[in-house]
C-alpha cells in the first residue's frame, strides 16, 4: 500500500526535509548567523543607529495606519459576503483577491500615475502643496494595495463556516446589530482576526517592490526597513543588512507560530 511502507515513508520525508532545508531552513538560519557574524556590537549598532531607527519608526507608522483600516475592511467584507446571500457574492470574494496576483511593482506604479508629478492629480497636488509620491502617503497607499486581501481572506472562510445561526439567536433574544457583532460574532472569530492582523502586519512591514517604486528611497525620510536592508546590502554592509533583516524575520517567525496556534483554536 502506498502510504504504509516504512522505507518509502523515510525516503519521502527525507526528500521533503532536504528540499525545505535548501530553500527555507538554510536561508532563515543564514539571516541570523549573518546578523551576528561580526559580533553583537555591530548587530546592536546596526539596529540602533539613527537611519535604522528612522526606518523602523517609518515602517511602524505604515503598519499602524494600514492594519487597523484593513481590519475594518476585512470585518465589513466578511460580514457582508458571508452573512448574506446575493447575486455576485462569489464574484466579490474573487475581486478581493486581485491584489495577490498583481505585481507589487505595478501596485506602486498605479499610484505614481495617479499622484506623481506627471500623474492625473500631479499638478493639482503640486498647486496645493501636497505630496503623496516620495512621501509617507504614497508608501502607505502602495502598502495598502498589496496587503488589502490578507485579513478579509482569513475571516471570510471562517465566518462562512460558522454560519449565521448564532447571530440570529442573538437577534431573537433582543440584541441589535451592534451588540450582536460585539458579543457574538467578534468573540467567535477573534483568533482568525488575530492571525489576519499579524500576517497583514508582517506583509506591511516587509513590502518591498511597491514601496520601492513610490518611496524614492530618501534616506532618513522615506526609507522603510526593507529599503534600508537593500541599501545596506548594496553597500556591502552585510552584517548590518542581516541585522535589520533578522528583526523582520523574528516577526515572520512569530506570524508562523501564531498561525499554528490559531489553527488549533478553530480548524476550518
Amino acid at each position: 500500500m502506498i502510504s504504509t511502507n516504512k522505507g518509502q515513508k523515510k525516503v519521502l520525508i527525507g526528500i521533503s526535509f532536504l528540499f525545505l532545508t535548501l530553500f527555507l531552513f538554510l536561508p532563515l538560519l543564514l539571516i541570523f548567523i549573518g546578523a551576528f557574524s561580526q559580533g553583537f556590537e555591530v548587530f546592536w549598532h546596526a539596529i540602533t543607529e539613527p537611519m535604522a531607527r528612522h526606518a523602523i519608526m517609518l515602517t511602524l507608522m505604515v503598519v499602524v495606519i494600514t492594519v487597523p483600516l484593513h481590519a475594518l475592511f476585512g470585518l465589513a467584507a466578511a460580514w457582508s459576503l458571508t452573512k448574506f446571500r446575493f447575486r455576485g457574492r462569489q464574484f466579490m470574494i474573487t475581486l478581493i483577491e486581485i491584489p495577490f496576483s498583481i505585481s507589487p511593482v505595478i501596485a506602486g506604479l498605479v499610484f505614481i500615475i495617479l499622484y506623481g508629478v506627471h500623474g492625473f492629480f500631479g499638478e493639482w497636488l503640486q498647486a496645493n502643496n501636497m505630496q503623496i509620491i516620495f512621501a509617507l502617503p504614497g508608501i502607505v497607499l502602495a502598502t495598502m494595495f498589496v496587503t488589502l486581501p490578507f485579513i478579509a481572506r482569513e475571516l471570510i472562510p471562517l465566518m462562512e463556516a460558522q454560519g449565521s445561526e448564532a447571530e440570529e439567536a442573538s437577534l431573537t433574544l433582543g440584541a441589535g446589530g451592534g451588540r450582536t457583532f460585539l458579543y457574538v460574532t467578534l468573540p467567535a472569530i477573534k483568533w482568525g482576526l488575530l492571525y489576519g492582523v499579524i500576517l497583514c502586519s508582517a506583509r506591511a512591514i516587509g513590502e518591498f517592490g511597491a514601496v520601492s517604486v513610490v518611496s524614492g528611497r530618501i534616506r532618513g525620510a522615506t526609507n522603510t526597513m526593507p529599503l534600508h536592508v537593500e541599501i545596506l546590502y548594496n553597500e556591502y554592509q552585510f552584517a548590518a543588512a542581516f541585522a535589520v533583516a533578522s528583526l523582520m524575520s523574528i516577526f515572520a517567525i512569530v506570524t508562523i507560530i501564531v498561525k499554528q496556534f490559531v489553527e488549533r483554536k478553530h480548524p476550518i
Binding site: 445561526e165 448564532a166 442573538s170 431573537t172 458579543y183 457574538v184 468573540p187
Partner: peptide, 14 residues
C-alpha cells in the same frame, strides 16, 4: 419578543 430554539442549538460557544 419571541423565543427561538434552533435545530443545532446555536449556543454561543465562547
Amino acid at each position: 419578543k419571541i423565543g427561538f430554539v434552533f435545530q443545532h442549538y446555536a449556543l454561543f460557544n465562547h
